[in-house]
Write a protein that binds this DNA or RNA. Structure first.
Length: 402
DNA sequence: TCTGGGGTCCTAGGACCC
DNA sequence: TCTGGGGTCCTAGGACCC
């Protein structure tokens, strides 16, 4: 049966949401109407553009470039900090509104949703529903969205990316040659900056070129990805809207340090702070980790990582830190100037409440679990950064978690 | 000049086993 | 001196997304 899919994408999400929050708090200016960006913090060496206004776009400012570059293009650019709490609030408002249409909603990111409307449409058309959602969000929530209307997720997503803002576009199968094939391959979902030049060398420049290219050759050159890009170019996508909440497959945190660090003792302290955060999140998800991964980025932007398996799946801060520390020492070369440190847990499994017999009870483990639990409760009550077991950590002032 | 942080998925190569 | 092949598991790194 033909599926009925919508893709809802908030226009300039972080910037629009910041704008309406500012107005709500009494601001006289609407930053959507001036050259403005949402940016990271340059003093923390995370100065990149997270979102831009239409006016900023006119100056050629692009998402993910540095604030420095943005300022070069537009010296009067206004820069605002991001605020994930506010973004989460508006994201939830959007989700609640969309729930009135279907409960088959996949939250693809904080500002994008897929809706499977297949079983919810009787006499109305999918396009009309798309238009209604577009109008209601604007009127009731105060920001605009693009809506893509199609029969699978890929085409809906491509459609919502056509002209912006505040638009509803269809991309049905018969429209593919006219609406999608003339576009450059860089516009195709999942074709990034590494693959595009390789295709260019093969004289494949538009999505249409790719659609007509030899599937076998693509597969030989790009493996699974080659097969997928050919299917996408032809508008083929059989994946379902994943509306049921899923457990994460990995949990990780990383920090760009305010200054490069070349002392392994200091790096260990940072690894401890991050391990605590990761283990805390792991316990919140009621998962156990089988693998720990440590990532380092040097001042020259060289990334390395090491991973190691745990003897037994765990969510204990102590055990995760112990493994992470081991991995750090294994990979860190004396004198290296480190810019970023990350800790991640992988191969996660559901935590089952196992009944351990009195004889098997490991007293040390029990104590450790209890300590983790007490600290978690304090964190929940007083806020994450207030509580740390590493009392001496001055670095905690430098590294703040959300 | 300066280059985030959170993820998912894939691949190549090595170790090890029969 | 010449030296299999198939399978599994693990790790490091990379590509891509928002």
């Amino acid at each position: 049966m033909e599926r009925q899919i919508l893709h809802v994408d908030v226009n300039n999400a972080f910037l629009s949401w910041t704008a309406i929050e500012m107005i709500k708090n009494g601001s006289k200016i609407d930053i959507r109407e001036i050259p403005a960006i949402i940016g990271g913090d340059e003093t923390k060496r995370s100065g990149i553009v997270l979102a831009k206004s239409m006016k900023a776009k006119e100056f050629g400012i692009k998402t993910a470039e540095t604030i420095y570059q943005a300022r070069m293009k537009c010296p009067n650019i206004q820069i605002f900090a991001s605020d994930y709490k506010t973004y989460k609030k508006y994201s939830n408002q959007l989700y609640q509104l969309l729930l009135e249409y279907t409960d088959k909603i996949e939250r693809f990111s904080i500002d994008e949703c897929f809706l499977d409307m297949t079983n919810y449409l009787m006499k109305d058309t999918l396009l009309n529903k798309g238009r209604e959602i577009n109008k209601r969000v604007k009127e009731e929530l105060g920001f605009t969205v693009n809506v893509g209307v199609a029969h699978n997720k890929l085409l809906a997503k491509m459609a919502s990316d056509f002209t912006k803002p505040d638009k509803v576009h269809t991309l049905f199968e018969e429209e593919i040659p006219k609406k999608m094939w003339p576009l450059p391959i860089s516009e195709l979902f999942m074709l990034g900056k590494k693959t595009v030049p390789k295709l260019y060398n093969m004289q494949i420049k538009t999505i249409g070129d790719l659609a007509k290219a030899d599937k076998k050759i693509l597969e030989k050159k790009f493996g699974k990805h080659g097969m997928q890009m050919w299917e996408y170019a032809n508008g083929i996508d059989k994946t379902e809207v994943k509306y049921l909440p899923e457990k994460p497959k990995c949990i990780g945190n990383s920090v760009t340090l305010p200054e490069n660090i070349s002392s392994v003792e200091q790096l260990e302290e940072i690894v401890l702070a991050i391990s605590e955060q990761v283990a805390y999140r792991l316990r919140k998800e009621e998962l156990l980790a089988n693998t720990v991964n440590v990532q380092l980025r040097t001042k020259d932007f060289i990334d390395t990582s090491h991973q190691g398996k745990m003897r037994e799946a765990t969510n204990s801060t102590k055990e995760i830190y112990s493994k992470a520390k081991e991995l750090l020492n294994e990979m860190y070369r004396k004198g290296q100037a480190i810019r970023l440190v990350g800790v991640r847990v992988d191969n996660l499994v559901e935590k089952e409440e196992k009944q351990i017999s009195l004889f098997e009870k490991d007293i040390n483990n029990e104590k450790q679990e209890k300590l983790d639990r007490v600290i978690d409760e304090l964190k929940d009550k007083y806020g994450y950064n207030k509580i740390t077991r590493a009392g001496k950590l001055e670095l905690n002032d430098k590294i703040k978690f959300k």
